[in-house]
Amino acid sequence: MGTTVAEVALKALSGGLLVLVFAALSKILKPERFAGVFSAAPSVALGSLAVTLVFSGTKDLTAIGSGMAVGAVAFVVYCVATAPLVRRFGAWQGSAGALLIWATVAAAGYAVVLS
Results as ranks from 00 to 15, higher is better:
85 L>K: 00
41 A>W: 00
35 A>C: 11
25 L>R: 03
94 G>M: 04
74 A>L: 02
19 V>Y: 07
107 A>N: 03
25 L>T: 12
4 T>C: 00
20 L>S: 04
81 A>F: 02
50 A>G: 00
2 G>D: 02
4 T>P: 00
3 T>E: 10
59 K>Y: 10
84 P>A: 01
15 G>S: 14
21 V>C: 05
2 G>F: 07
23 A>M: 07
36 G>H: 09
83 A>G: 04
54 V>W: 10
76 V>A: 13
54 V>P: 03
34 F>Q: 10
87 R>L: 12
40 A>V: 14
72 A>E: 13
33 R>H: 08
49 L>C: 06
82 T>N: 03
62 T>N: 05
44 V>H: 02
90 G>Y: 06
82 T>C: 09
60 D>Q: 15
110 Y>Q: 13
70 V>I: 08
33 R>C: 09
92 W>L: 15
42 P>I: 04
37 V>E: 05
70 V>H: 04
32 E>F: 06
100 L>T: 11
57 G>L: 13
35 A>F: 06
46 L>T: 14
13 L>K: 03
42 P>E: 06
77 V>I: 03
112 V>H: 03
28 I>G: 03
75 F>Y: 09
75 F>M: 09
15 G>L: 00
26 S>N: 07
4 T>R: 06
15 G>A: 13
32 E>R: 12
75 F>V: 09
79 C>W: 08
36 G>E: 05
86 V>N: 06
82 T>M: 13
97 G>T: 05
62 T>A: 13
51 V>Q: 00
87 R>C: 06
40 A>Q: 05
3 T>D: 13
53 L>S: 13
29 L>S: 10
99 L>P: 01
106 A>C: 07
96 A>N: 06
20 L>Y: 09
79 C>D: 01
82 T>W: 07
69 A>E: 08
111 A>V: 07
97 G>N: 08
109 G>K: 11
31 P>I: 07
51 V>A: 03
56 S>H: 15
49 L>H: 08
103 A>Q: 06
55 F>I: 08
112 V>M: 12
87 R>T: 08
51 V>H: 02
100 L>K: 00
97 G>S: 03
53 L>N: 07
48 S>L: 12
84 P>Y: 01
103 A>V: 11
69 A>W: 04
54 V>A: 14
81 A>T: 06
77 V>T: 00
63 A>M: 09
5 V>Y: 12
55 F>S: 12
11 K>T: 15
16 G>N: 00
106 A>Q: 07
58 T>D: 15
19 V>P: 11
29 L>E: 14
70 V>T: 05
98 A>W: 13
101 I>C: 07
62 T>C: 12
7 E>N: 12
2 G>S: 11
69 A>F: 06
88 R>F: 02
1 M>G: 10
23 A>S: 14
70 V>D: 02
39 S>I: 02
17 L>A: 10
29 L>W: 09
1 M>K: 08
59 K>E: 15
68 M>W: 00
51 V>G: 00
79 C>M: 15
6 A>M: 14
